[in-house]
Design a protein around this nucleic acid. Structure first.
Length: 294
DNA sequence: CACTTGACCTGTCCGC
DNA sequence: TGCGGACAGGTCAAGT
């Protein structure tokens, strides 16, 4: 599920809910999900007990929680991960869950449960079990190369056209869609927002990086930023799994130009949206609006 | 070295 | 109704 906008929505939700709370208990229902910094299942999660949540942050598609006691938790939700927060007694904020929301938790996909000092709980659910939580000390974290290779944050000032071009030029023969999903080129773009950004930039997803003009890179830079901002504004993309911290779906896909719109009319030119595969991933585009591979 | 494919998992949907 | 295959937000390691 989650690309940059979805993780951002979760970050904003958690900041409001858990900063200042202390961890009371942690239940690990799937040992593989909870790992040390080397990816080995963690055996000493009880070290978390009593630690206070100091901050919640995001880098690329990774969510971080800074704790007292020199500890850091990192979360990667991969395809189907969810972080859903509830007040005590498994009740949603705002009352009974609507059809947009989850049923009661834990469910069969709940892998880890954190309980906080006020009785609220944070459920890490993950149908496919690709997602992980890593725990390390701040000291260990600082010396880690974990984030070193990541490209720039596209919604921060450091993401200039110039940087995008420099990073793209390392991958001249790659289809542009694959290149912008490469986390070392730009951080946080995944399969949905890659298709959307390329539509906004009017570039065919299969066009080789080396064939892009400066104007196209300029439009792509804008398109990446715009699609991600819209993703956040509509509170993320839900195909089936993405939920925010209150269990609500995101609405971005009903505003998408191309993603999952195969056979439907282009919102700009009214011709038909097409789908094909690039590097094994479903890719959507408008053959009329997006420049071909010449 | 640059790039592509398969593996990791579970669930759903579609065609036969 | 059942069964096999393709596919689904991501990222590695292994292979070409």
């Amino acid at each position: 599920m989650p690309e940059l906008p979805e993780v951002e929505i979760i970050k904003l939700g958690l900041q409001k809910k858990i900063i200042g709370q202390r961890i009371k208990t942690i239940r690990i229902l799937n040992p593989k999900t909870f790992q040390d910094s080397n990816g080995k299942p963690f055996k000493f999660a009880q070290g978390l007990r009593g630690q206070k949540v100091l901050n919640v942050w995001r880098r690329a598609k990774i969510l971080g929680i800074d704790l007292s006691g020199d500890l850091i938790l990192l979360f990667h939700l991969k395809m189907t991960g969810q972080l859903v927060w509830m007040k005590s007694e498994n009740r949603f904020v705002g009352g009974h869950p609507t059809s947009d929301m989850l049923g009661n938790l834990p469910n069969s996909h709940t892998r880890v449960i954190f309980e906080f000092s006020d009785g609220s709980k944070l459920y890490f659910n993950d149908q496919r079990r690709f997602g992980w939580i890593k725990m390390s000390s701040k000291l260990e974290f600082r010396s880690e190369k974990f984030f070193e290779k990541l490209g720039p944050e596209p919604l921060e000032k450091g993401f200039s056209q110039k940087i995008l071009k420099e990073n793209l030029l390392k991958h001249l023969s790659m289809p542009i869609k694959v290149a912008i999903m490469d986390q070392t080129v730009v951080a946080g773009v995944g399969n949905i927002y890659a298709s959307e950004a390329l539509f906004l930039a009017q570039i065919h997803p299969g066009k080789k990086v080396g064939l892009l003009s400066d104007l196209e890179i300029k439009k792509l830079h804008k398109g990446i930023i715009k699609s991600l901002q819209d993703g956040i504004a509509y509170r993320g993309s839900t195909m089936t799994h993405f939920k925010d911290t209150e269990g609500k779906k995101g609405d971005f896909l009903s505003h998408a130009f191309v993603y999952r719109r195969e056979g439907q009319k282009c919102k700009k030119c009214k011709l038909t949206i097409k789908k094909f595969k690039i590097a094994g991933r479903g890719t959507y585009f408008c053959p009329n609006c997006q420049d071909g591979v010449k």
